[in-house]
Amino acid sequence: VLKALERTRQLDIPDEKTMPVLMKLLEEAGGNWSYIKLDNYTALVDAIYSVED
C-alpha cells in the first residue's frame, strides 16, 4: 500500500482519492497485487483518473 501511495503522491494525487480506488481494484483483483503493480501502478493511476472524469 505504501508504494502505491508513494507513486500517486508523485503525481499530486491525495491519499483520500487513492485509497478508495485502490481498495476497489484490490477487491476486483481478488487481492492480487500483480495487476495493480504493473508498469509502476499504471492501472491504479488510470483508475483514479477515470473516476475523476
Rank of each mutant, 00 (worst) to 15 (best):
V1L: 13
V1E: 06
L2A: 13
L2W: 12
L2F: 10
L2D: 14
L2G: 09
K3V: 06
K3E: 15
K3D: 15
A4G: 02
A4R: 01
A4V: 05
A4L: 04
A4T: 03
L5Q: 05
L5M: 02
L5W: 02
L5S: 01
L5N: 01
L5A: 02
E6Y: 08
E6L: 10
R7K: 07
R7C: 10
R7G: 02
R7W: 12
T8G: 03
T8E: 04
T8V: 04
T8D: 04
T8C: 15
R9Y: 04
R9Q: 08
R9S: 05
R9P: 04
R9T: 06
Q10A: 14
Q10W: 08
Q10T: 08
Q10E: 14
Q10N: 09
L11W: 06
L11I: 04
L11S: 05
L11T: 04
L11H: 07
L11N: 06
L11C: 09
D12E: 11
D12Y: 11
D12Q: 14
D12C: 15
D12K: 15
I13A: 01
I13M: 04
I13R: 02
I13D: 00
I13S: 03
P14T: 05
P14Y: 05
P14Q: 05
P14N: 03
D15Y: 04
D15Q: 01
D15C: 05
E16T: 09
E16H: 13
E16F: 09
E16N: 11
E16Q: 10
K17D: 07
K17I: 15
K17T: 10
K17L: 11
T18P: 01
T18K: 02
T18M: 07
T18S: 13
M19K: 04
M19T: 05
M19S: 02
M19Y: 10
M19V: 11
M19R: 05
M19D: 01
P20K: 12
P20D: 08
P20A: 08
P20N: 08
P20V: 12
V21F: 06
V21D: 00
V21Y: 05
V21N: 02
L22T: 01
L22Y: 00
L22Q: 01
M23I: 12
M23N: 09
M23C: 10
M23S: 07
M23Y: 09
M23V: 09
M23R: 10
K24W: 08
L25C: 04
L25A: 02
L25S: 01
L25V: 03
L25K: 02
L25N: 01
L26Y: 04
L26G: 01
L26K: 01
L26P: 00
E27K: 13
E27R: 12
E27T: 10
E27H: 14
E27N: 10
E27S: 11
E28M: 11
E28S: 11
E28A: 13
E28N: 10
E28L: 13
E28D: 12
A29Y: 15
A29K: 08
A29F: 15
A29G: 07
G30T: 05
G30V: 05
G30D: 12
G31M: 09
G31L: 06
N32I: 08
N32C: 11
N32Y: 06
N32R: 07
N32F: 06
N32L: 06
N32K: 08
N32W: 04
N32P: 02
W33F: 06
W33T: 01
W33R: 00
W33D: 04
W33H: 03
W33L: 03
W33G: 01
W33E: 02
S34K: 11
S34R: 09
S34L: 11
S34D: 15
S34I: 09
S34F: 15
S34V: 10
Y35L: 13
Y35M: 15
Y35K: 11
I36R: 00
I36S: 01
I36F: 04
I36D: 01
I36Q: 00
K37G: 09
K37L: 14
K37H: 11
L38Q: 15
L38V: 10
L38M: 14
L38A: 15
D39G: 11
D39Y: 08
D39R: 08
D39F: 08
D39K: 09
D39I: 02
N40H: 07
N40D: 10
N40K: 05
N40W: 06
N40S: 07
N40L: 06
Y41D: 01
Y41K: 00
Y41R: 00
Y41M: 03
Y41C: 03
T42Y: 13
T42R: 15
T42I: 13
T42A: 15
T42Q: 15
T42M: 14
A43L: 14
A43N: 09
A43R: 12
A43K: 12
L44C: 01
L44W: 03
L44S: 02
L44E: 00
V45W: 04
V45G: 01
D46V: 12
D46M: 15
D46K: 14
D46H: 12
A47L: 06
A47G: 05
A47D: 03
A47E: 06
A47F: 04
A47R: 09
I48Y: 04
I48R: 02
I48C: 02
I48Q: 00
Y49L: 14
Y49N: 13
Y49K: 11
Y49D: 07
Y49G: 08
Y49H: 11
Y49I: 11
Y49A: 11
Y49Q: 11
S50Y: 10
S50F: 10
S50W: 08
V51F: 11
V51M: 14
V51I: 13
V51L: 15
V51W: 12
V51G: 12
V51C: 09
E52Y: 15
E52P: 12
E52I: 14
D53I: 12
D53V: 14
D53F: 13
D53R: 10
D53H: 14
D53E: 14
